[in-house]
């Protein structure tokens, strides 16, 4: 439906449009200038020909691509399994930490201790301890597959972070919501599940996606246990040919993997903002 606009409004609209066009143009120009300056600075540097040969060799990139891709497939599988485990364990710990009453003191203390321990320990050390320490116990039923062990270490460390994100979300839900739920006769568990958690999870979705992106690249760290993932595959190739290009290939692939998640995070944040604006 179009409305008849006064000449004044039409002129204002045209002015706003021309301002918007000018801003876009300025932004575009400044971006091109900065990019060109960086490009020139890099390619004019004295070591550039050397760097080009060792890091940006197209033949090496093409040759290593299949094995690196194959390694990346392992990363993706580890990522999916680990993320699922992290979400479940993280949410469980967060809920345990919010339990009230003296009866639950040991549970609360355990959950707090877990978060303190695994949030504090460097991921690399957790990987070594679990990847090499667990199999060394020679217990029955302990997996020896390095990818599985790496996955376990990732879950343990990351669920401590994610638990804190969930807990922040749970505590951000106003107490009056819990009061309203309890006043209707819902039990603590029911009000948590039906009223508090849905609001909390929606609120912490952006930081959760942020942790997910961090996990995406940290999946590459399982290579230190010997699992042949993208980084390990690149390392093997680089060691054989004395060319670092495979690392660049693996790095670019990880970036490509992270881009969709980043856009999803943006979309989720924008949707949350719209919802708030509508209120």
């Amino acid at each position: 439906m179009t409305h008849a606009l006064s000449p004044l409004a039409r002129e204002r609209r045209a002015y706003r449009r021309s301002r918007a066009r000018r801003s876009t143009l300025v932004a575009l120009l400044s971006t091109v200038v900065v990019a060109a300056a960086i490009g020139v600075a890099v390619t004019q540097s004295p070591g550039w020909p050397r760097v080009q040969v060792t890091f940006l060799d197209p033949a090496s990139a093409w040759r290593s691509l299949p094995t690196v891709l194959e390694g990346l497939w392992l990363n993706v599988r580890v990522l999916v399994v680990a993320e699922l485990g992290i979400l479940v364990l993280g949410l469980l710990i967060a809920v345990l930490r919010t339990l009230r009453g003296p009866v639950f003191f040991p549970v609360r203390a355990l959950a707090t201790g877990y978060v303190d321990l695994f949030r504090g320990i460097p991921l690399l050390i957790a990987l070594y301890l679990i990847g090499f320490g667990l199999p060394a116990l020679r217990l029955q039923g302990i997996p020896t597959d390095t990818a599985v062990l790496g996955c376990v270490a990732l879950i343990l460390v990351y669920s401590a972070y994610v638990a804190e994100v969930f807990r922040a979300g749970i505590e951000s839900v106003h107490p009056s919501q819990r009061a309203a739920a309890r006043s209707l006769g819902l039990t603590h568990r029911q009000s948590m599940r039906l009223v508090v958690l849905p609001q909390a999870v929606r609120r912490v979705l952006p930081p959760l996606l942020n942790d997910f992106v961090a996990l995406q690249k940290d999946c590459g760290l399982i290579s230190v246990l010997g699992a042949v993932d993208a980084i390990r595959a690149a390392q093997i190739d680089a060691a054989r040919t004395f060319n670092f290009t495979p690392y660049v290939v693996a790095g670019l692939l990880f970036v490509l993997l992270a881009i969709p998640t980043g856009r999803i995070a943006d979309a989720v944040a924008a949707r949350a903002a719209r919802r708030q604006g509508a209120q």
């Binding site: 606009l5 004044l8 409004a9 204002r12 002015y15």
Partner: peptide, 17 residues
């Protein structure tokens, strides 16, 4: 505003400029 003017002390403040 979509159309019209708002004048504060005689100055059009709804103008985008």
């Amino acid at each position: 505003v979509d159309d019209g003017q708002i004048l504060l002390d005689g100055v059009d403040i709804s103008d985008p400029r």
